[in-house]
């Protein structure tokens, strides 16, 4: 049977291959916690028994890697994250697809993510740049290494938080917990493992990149949003409050009355285009987050 929990987990990992990497990460963490807890209890109750026989009894109750992988496969197909993209091909006519975006929660969620990414971008960027420069600067001092260690561990914490945001607002499946360490791993080994982990460095890159992306997203979408709001509010602004469309130093420009309905329609079209764009950019950003923040099994 299985020599140890690791052997079981590696077979389970194989069985789960092809599933979402985030699901695999969660499934392995659940299985490991269960098996380790059960093994510990069994050892206390039967200290004389061989660990392998204890483990095989536990696995008989828990299920073989094949059984567990099958259970995950059966359930995962029924699960979709909130605002998940519809997988099947969109066969609605062109105009329904175009205007239908007004009723899609996912488009608004993506817009919200893109507008707030400037805030998270500033936070992540500050954290990453401060962490790196302080780590380098303090390295000559006695507490330089512990500081660097804390910083390295914090990176994956931030990755988890950002992952939750991305899953909730962009609908891309992301991990719900951190990649576990083997039970009893010392702090130094954990630190070295994090340093060797490619994901630590890709996450750091993501944290830095979030700022420029956040600035671009925010600028583009806030301009489009402001523009369309102005177009739609124009009749009220001009007729009620006597505000011009544009005011120059040498005068004000008021639009003619007949163009107001057209400009109002243009404003609505602008919102629709904006939402489509938000959905598209959100998808790209989600794909980037997944590539940089999630470990490939």
């Amino acid at each position: 049977m299985y020599q140890n929990v690791e052997a079981y987990l590696s077979e389970l990992r194989e069985g789960l291959s092809g599933l979402d990497p985030a699901t695999i990460q969660d499934a392995l963490a659940d299985a490991e916690d269960h098996l380790q807890s059960a093994l510990e209890q069994a050892r206390r109750e039967h200290p004389e028994a061989a660990p392998e026989s204890l483990l095989s009894a536990i696995i008989a109750d828990f299920g073989t890697p094949q059984e567990i992988a099958k259970a995950y496969r059966e359930i995962e197909v029924r699960l979709t994250p909130p605002f998940a993209p519809v997988k099947k091909k969109d066969t609605r006519p062109f105009y329904v697809r175009f205007f239908g975006v007004l009723g899609e929660p996912r488009a608004y969620a993506a817009l919200l993510y893109l507008l707030t990414s400037i805030v998270t971008g500033v936070l992540y960027f500050t954290w990453a740049v401060t962490g790196v420069s302080l780590s380098v600067g303090l390295m000559v001092l006695i507490f330089g290494l512990p500081f660097f260690g804390l910083f390295v561990f914090s990176i994956q914490g931030l990755a988890l938080v950002e992952g939750r945001l991305v899953e909730a607002l962009l609908g891309v499946r992301m991990p719900r917990r951190q990649m576990p360490f083997r039970a009893g791993t010392g702090i130094w080994k954990k630190f070295v493992a994090r340093l060797k982990d490619r994901r630590t460095w890709t996450t750091l890159a993501y944290l830095v990149l979030q700022l420029p992306f956040g600035i671009i997203h925010f600028t583009i979408f806030i301009v489009l949003l402001a523009y369309s709001l102005q177009l739609m509010a124009l009749p009220v602004l001009q007729l009620v409050f006597d505000q011009p469309l544009i005011s120059f130093s040498f005068g004000k420009y008021f639009v003619p009355l007949w163009s107001m309905p057209l400009l109002f329609i243009a404003g609505i079209l602008d919102v629709i285009v904006l939402l489509h764009l938000a959905k598209f950019v959100g998808r790209q950003h989600g794909a980037m987050a997944k590539a940089l923040l999630v470990q490939r099994a």
């Binding site: 299985a31 380790q36 029924r78 719900r176």
Partner: peptide
């Protein structure tokens, strides 16, 4: 082992809520 996917699906459906806490034994 097949309880875990069911727990996850119930959480996904909003019937359960969860939080992660560190444990001394493992993950």
């Amino acid at each position: 082992g097949s309880l875990y996917p069911v727990l996850r699906s119930l959480e996904k459906g909003g019937l359960l809520d969860s939080n992660v806490e560190p444990s001394v034994t493992g993950p």
